[in-house]
């Protein structure tokens, strides 16, 4: 059961649970702004080995129709995917370029 991925704002004390309890998913928190370097996938060289997907610490690479799709809303730009790619088909480029 996927959790609600939207932000939550409380207005009143009575809206709070009695104890600190999570009510929403951190997927409401796009971490893409942390990034200095952006991974760019050159799909033509991709051998669909899943290595980039497997090692993403942020679950920011989705596996869609047998190919990786980098979710830039969340990718923090660590570069593990580019480093581990056996075909070097992910390139880290400066953000904003």
């Amino acid at each position: 059961m996927a959790k609600n991925r939207t932000k939550i704002e409380f207005q009143k004390l009575s809206e709070l649970p009695p104890m600190v309890q999570s009510l929403r998913s951190m997927a409401a928190n796009p971490t893409g702004s942390w990034r200095n370097l952006k991974p760019v996938l050159h799909k033509e060289n991709c051998i669909q080995c899943t290595i980039c997907w497997k090692f993403c610490p942020d679950a920011a690479i989705d596996w869609v129709d047998d190919y990786p799709v980098i979710n830039l809303d969340f990718c923090k730009g660590c570069g593990i995917c580019a480093e581990e790619c056996p075909k070097k088909c992910i390139e880290m480029v400066k953000e904003g370029k």
């Binding site: 991925r5 998913s25 951190m26 409401a28 942390w34 610490p57 660590c78």
Partner: peptide, 16 residues
């Protein structure tokens, strides 16, 4: 079962 958007540092081994 782990969503993106968490607060681990870039390249965090504990995240993996």
């Amino acid at each position: 079962l782990m969503s993106p958007g968490h607060l681990a540092c870039q390249g965090c081994g504990a995240g993996i």
